[in-house]
């Protein structure tokens, strides 16, 4: 059976690397194939990495509050690149200042993300979701 491939990294010029390093390590230890792009990864680099590695999902992080600006048109670019089946998950701190997570969820779903996670979500939650989502799509697992 093919290993599931997941791309990780923080988007834009977000420098917060600790979380995405930990996520990458946990995913690897859980048996996934991980493409670790690290911090400060431009949106386009996520797309080209997904194409090159035929990835199943992106676990994107953003802590610095400016992801919304970074990700305008991201889903459209994924579709243009033929990445129709690629699952898009995002987590971290998605807005600037104290705000309601429900607003983040709505915004990022509109931007084309399949799942949006509140601050400090355990990656294991997303791993369970991923297995489900892939099953629904009739893919690997």
């Amino acid at each position: 059976m093919d290993k599931i491939t997941i791309i990780t990294g923080t988007v834009g010029v977000d420098a917060h690397v600790i979380g995405t390093k930990i996520i990458s390590r946990v995913l690897r230890d859980e048996g996934f194939n991980v493409v670790e792009l690290g911090a400060q990864t431009p949106p386009e680099e996520f797309i080209s990495a997904a194409q090159e590695t035929a990835a199943d999902a992106i676990f994107m992080s953003s802590l610095y509050g400016m992801a919304e600006m970074d990700l305008q048109g991201f889903k459209e670019k994924c579709l243009e690149a033929g990445l129709d089946d690629l699952l898009l998950y995002i987590g971290g701190i998605l807005g600037v200042m104290r705000h309601d997570f429900n607003d983040d969820e709505e915004k990022f779903k509109k931007l084309g993300f399949d799942r949006v996670y509140p601050p400090e979500t355990d990656v294991k939650v997303a791993i369970a979701d991923l297995k489900n989502d892939l099953k629904v799509k009739g893919g690997k697992v």
Binding site: G65, I93, G95, V96, M97, R98, H99, P119, E120
Partner: peptide, 11 residues
């Protein structure tokens, strides 16, 4: 507010 986002004046 540190864990939440850029702090408000009140916090």
């Amino acid at each position: 507010d540190e864990a939440i986002g850029v702090p408000s004046i009140e916090s």
